[in-house]
Computed example of a mutant assay.
Amino acid sequence: MIKIAIVGFGKIAQDQHLPALQKNSDYQLVAVASRNTSLDGVAHYKTLEALLDAMPELDAVSLCAPPAVRYAQAQLALARGKHVFLEKPPGATLSEVEALSEQAKAAGKTLFASWHSRYAQGVAPAKAWLADKTIKSVQVNWKEDVRVWHPGQAWIWEPGGMGIFDPAINALSIVTEILPKPFFLKQAALQVPENCQTPIRAQLEFSYEAGAAIQADLDFLQTGPQTWDIHVETDKGTLKLSKGGSQLYIDGQLEKEGPDEEYSGLYARFAELVKSGQSDVDVAPLRHVADAFMYGRRETVEPFHEDT
């Protein structure tokens, strides 16, 4: 069994990482490192460094803290000879992730940049269906309520927090997975609240082969029903991934639907990588976000307040 610890025991770790680990017989969860939260039945430490000092027998860590601190944590864990699972995004910058990839390779340890939405039930069959199609257009609609999904998390509005791209990178992780060929940012508009450093809404346009357009409409202020949809028009029909990829429609007919097992898939993949001595560090989704910040037009909009 892989002796693993969770570092950063917030909402995503409690809701997704913990149950996925508990169901997987490849792992033994032996510790949690978190400033404010512990878990009954396993050791608790305030910091990753304290954890590593106390438990040299540890095999791996799952890093679930915000991206701004992820590089330092991953660098330390790799230096101590541990395999590293990175919650998305894998780092605050592309340079950080590249450095970690090289460090993992030199240490002979596994580094896994996880993209949980790629493990939604409809994504693999969508990729297979699109493999021999000519893409005519892609429309991404990714709209959710930040007050529901990130209550009180001010870090998301700071540099490195990514704002709307924190959830929207999930859409980009799916699109980069299912399309047969790469695409490139053509233009972007980023709406940034005057009291924040990261966008609350964004509109992106990408170029694809043969003039096909890829467009994305991203919104962090959607109330009521949430929208996580990807529409793909091809020469042989229309594909739609809905509910974050858990539902696949072909020409309006539901072809695939299943339970939320994204994190179970991630941890199964991580175990495979550890056992085979390999890494998986795909930064394509993060690169598109970086391109949007570098190439997008910023528009200042009304301030964001948690309680309004």
Score class of each variant (00 low, 15 high):
T223H: 15
G224C: 04
P225N: 08
P225V: 07
P225C: 08
P225L: 09
P225Q: 09
Q226F: 03
Q226P: 06
T227C: 10
T227S: 09
W228C: 01
D229S: 10
D229T: 07
D229W: 06
I230G: 13
I230K: 14
H231D: 07
H231I: 12
V232Y: 12
E233R: 15
E233L: 10
E233G: 09
T234C: 05
D235F: 01
K236E: 15
K236G: 14
K236R: 14
K236P: 08
K236N: 15
K236F: 04
G237E: 10
G237K: 11
G237Q: 11
G237A: 05
T238M: 04
T238P: 01
T238K: 15
T238G: 05
T238E: 06
T238N: 11
L239N: 03
K240C: 07
L241D: 00
L241G: 00
L241I: 01
L241T: 00
S242I: 10
S242T: 12
K243R: 07
K243T: 01
G244F: 02
G244R: 04
G245N: 07
G245A: 12
G245I: 08
S246N: 15
Q247C: 08
Q247W: 06
Q247I: 07
L248N: 07
L248G: 11
L248A: 09
Y249D: 02
Y249V: 09
I250M: 10
I250F: 04
I250R: 13
D251A: 11
Q253R: 10
L254K: 04
L254T: 06
L254F: 02
E255G: 06
E255A: 11
E255T: 09
K256E: 14
K256R: 14
E257K: 04
G258L: 01
G258T: 03
G258H: 01
P259V: 08
D260R: 03
D260C: 05
E261G: 08
E261A: 13
E262Y: 03
E262M: 14
Y263E: 12
Y263V: 12
Y263F: 15
S264E: 15
S264Q: 15
S264A: 11
G265Y: 02
G265I: 00
L266D: 11
L266S: 02
Y267M: 06
Y267C: 01
A268C: 03
A268Y: 09
R269N: 03
F270H: 02
A271S: 11
A271G: 03
E272R: 00
